[in-house]
Structure formats: C-alpha cells, structure tokens
Nucleic acid binder design. Structure first.
Lengths: 105, 105
DNA sequence: ATAACGCGTAAGGCTACGCTTACGTGTTAG
DNA sequence: CTAACACGTAAGCGTAGCCTTACGCGTTAT
C-alpha cells in the first residue's frame, strides 16, 4: 500500500497539480473539473482521492454533487514542507539566490 | 520521450531529493553519495543524470572522480517555479496561511 | 604496459502510476 | 416508483520509473 506519499509525489503529476491549483482558485464539482481537462471524469475522481488522502483537499456534499475545496490546513502543511526543503537546501548556500520570498497574504 | 519533466517530478523521488539536498550542502563525488545511500552506485548515477538534465546540478571532472555541484541557475529557476506555483495557488486564497515566509540567506 | 579505480550506460525486471471502461450507490426530479 | 444525474470504485491495460547486474571507457598509479 502506498502509505502517505510526499507532497512532491502528489504534485508531480501535471493533471493533479492543475486540479489542485484550480481548486485553490474556486471550489468545484468533479464533472466541472473533468469538463475542462483532457481526461475522463473517473480519472479526475482518482486524482481527487490522492489529493484528499494527502490532506490537501476536502469534499463537501451538495445534493448530487460533491464540491471539492482546498484544505487550509493541508495548504499550510504544504507550505511548511516547501519551506523546510528550501531551508535545508539553502543551508550551506548563502549565495546569489537574490529573490526575497514574496509576501503571502 | 521524457522531454523536460517538471521540477516536481524531478524531486518526487525521495532518493533523488536527498541527493540534491546533500549536494546543496557540499559538492560530492558519485561513489561518495552512493556510500551513504541504500542504493547502488549506478542508481545514483542515473539520479544525477535526471538532475543534470533538469539543470539542477553540474558535474566537474576531478581526476578519476566527477564532482557534482548544485547549479545556482537551476536553483534560482526552481525557486521561481515554486514561487509561481505558490502565487497561483494562493491567488484567490487570502486566508489564514499565517506563517510568513522565512528569510533566505 | 598493466592494473586498479571511478564512473557512465545498456539491458532487463518489477512495481507503481495514470488512464479507460464498466458498474454500483446515493440523490433529485417527474 | 422510476428515471436521470453526479459521483466513487473495481478491473484491466500500457507505460514510465527505479532498481540491479554487467560491461566499457578514461584516468591515475605501479
């Protein structure tokens, strides 16, 4: 069993990454997402399952539909993970990576 | 043909990510890396090839050895890619992701 | 020249992954 | 009650990914 894959692995797939970015923009139903993607609806469902297992999204029933939202906690965890990686990577690299991180909110 | 895979895909593999973080800490030869990892030396070579193709590392011959370094340009590009993703994702998400980004250097 | 070292690469195997089609379930509409 | 809708999930397939072993090439040492 694939137990708890890393954020990197979850977002490695382009389709899944697109879905996630889109959900961040505005919550959507499955079919709605699928209609704008080059894959079938079940494929989208499967991607959503991976994202959900990773704690990145939440689903809320709305009648027949199922609206998927980005999970704020998961988003924060992702941020923490990226920060950790970035800090570790740049630990001994006080060099010319100018770009100061942008403001968040 | 695997043409130009994303930074996410490149860093999705744990072993490869470890190698990259370690090279950021200090440049190393292939065998040196392999001796600290649970995989064979050829496996490390293959990971390094992926990292090199992604522009994340550079190799410099030093006698019999081949020292791998992190490519500063690639590092900056990675930073840009992560920033882009993060900005896109948080575009319509001015919410409670408190954690202000840490300082870099 | 010969041997030993460090490495890249080819070949093959195994598993994980992403996709499709088919089907089952819960919900709203008529 | 029945039909239609939106969705999840199982089953199966093809491919990509990561690993190993085997081999070949350039470099340094004897």
């Amino acid at each position: 069993m694939t137990y708890a894959k890393s954020s990197w692995a979850v977002l490695a797939d382009p389709t899944r990454r697109t879905i996630f970015e889109r959900l961040a923009a505005y919550p959507s139903a499955v079919g709605e997402l699928a209609s704008d993607l080059p894959v079938s609806r079940p494929a989208v469902s499967q991607h959503l399952k991976v994202l959900k297992d990773a704690g990145l999204v939440i689903d809320i029933r709305a009648g027949k539909q199922r609206i998927y939202h980005v999970d704020p906690d998961g988003l924060a965890a992702l941020r923490a993970e990226l920060d950790r990686f970035w800090n570790n990577t740049l630990a001994a690299y006080k060099s010319v990576v100018e770009q100061p991180p942008r403001e968040i909110s």
